[in-house]
């Protein structure tokens, strides 16, 4: 990530050497940099150890995608099967296609409805005049993030379920009850709204932090120039937020095929698999439950690779548009 050589190149491109050769920033050797940054690196060590132990080391387990893996035999004794497990991706397996269809539908819904929600909420919060009120509202909005999905699903059942609060009221006041929880057609809308309810408040944190960094004097200058509130929001607030929005969007693309495992698994019995099976539950149902570990691992592996490719290409595109993206090579 060193940007040190850039000025040198810039000078070079201008075509003429400066008269007094100021010492060009010498590229330090690997060892020198290590010595210079030793304390910082030491501080990073525990984090690196955690990432290696819990993220990189388990990746090795993906070899079972190329095995006829049996848990009682272990990785060493299970037979190798080459690419046999990957055949399911190309032979039009109806269950996998159904899971893929549901996943993509939910991904699309989440991109359209879930992703922008915290941005809008952050803008609203930011426009609240009273600091105290804002803090209270924020705390309330953060809370659902800390509820586990089991609790949250139970809460939704208590409120929207067939014998829940809403339907009790409807029935006692002589109306027809609404079938929301057990309705396969409403399932995708239901899980999307659950995600919005649970995580929108929490996701505003980053956006609010960025908003706090925007230079106040820009607003003053704009209002002196006669810009309306709307134009200020568009030209100052949103453009200030743009890098972080793009960064989060790229990261989101990476796990766009993970649309919620526990949340969906918990609610699967009510609506059936046709409506609710997604790639993650497919992997679980076939692997851990059904014992087809190799096939499940193959599907999971391909899913991970697709996510990686999405992140990399989105990052490239972001660079092409002159944005920072997630990182620079």
């Amino acid at each position: 990530m060193s940007v040190a050589p850039a000025p040198a190149r810039a000078r070079h491109q201008t075509g003429h050497r400066p008269s007094s050769p100021s010492p060009a920033p010498r590229r330090r050797s690997w060892w020198e940099r290590l010595k210079r940054d030793k304390f910082v690196l030491l501080l990073a060590l525990p984090g690196i150890a955690v990432i290696i132990t819990f993220h990189y080391y388990p990746l090795l387990g993906n070899v079972i995608a190329f095995q006829d893996y049996q848990p009682y035999l272990g990785i060493r004794e299970s037979l190798w099967s080459g690419f046999d497990n990957f055949k399911i991706l190309f032979n039009g397996d109806p269950d996998l296609l159904n899971a893929l269809k549901n996943t993509l539908t939910i991904t699309a819904l989440q991109t359209v409805f879930v992703f922008p929600a915290p941005i809008i909420l952050a803008l609203i919060l930011n426009s609240l005049a009273s600091n105290r009120l804002r803090q209270i509202v924020q705390s309330v909005l953060y809370l659902p993030h800390f509820l586990s999905w089991v609790i949250l699903v139970a809460v939704f059942q208590q409120v929207l379920g067939g014998a829940g609060l809403l339907n009790n009221y409807l029935r006692s006041s002589g109306h027809e009850a609404l079938n929301i929880i057990g309705n396969a057609d409403a399932f995708k809308a239901l899980v999307t709204s659950q995600v919005i309810w649970k995580d929108t408040g929490w996701a505003t944190i980053l956006f609010l932090a960025v908003l706090a960094q925007i230079d106040r004097s820009l607003y003053e200058a704009a209002s002196v120039d006669g810009a309306s509130k709307l134009r200020q929001t568009w030209h100052i607030t949103l453009s200030g937020m743009r890098p972080i929005i793009i960064l989060l969007f790229i990261l989101k693309l990476g796990d766009s095929l993970s649309v919620g495992f526990e949340q969906i698994l918990l609610q699967q019995p009510a609506v059936g698999r046709q409506a609710s099976e997604v790639l993650d539950t497919f992997v679980y149902n076939n692997g851990v439950v059904g014992g087809a570990w190799g096939v499940a691992a193959a599907v999971g592996l391909v899913k991970g690779v697709i996510g990686l490719l999405l992140v990399l290409s989105a990052n490239k595109i972001a660079h092409a548009f002159g944005e920072e993206g997630v990182y620079k090579a």
Partner: peptide, 21 residues
């Protein structure tokens, strides 16, 4: 049956029929 019985089972279809879908 152990591997696939539940997954290919008729439970989803029963649910769909009973709930009128």
């Amino acid at each position: 049956n152990v591997r696939k019985g539940n997954q290919i089972g008729m439970g989803d279809l029963e649910l769909d029929i009973l709930q009128g879908r």
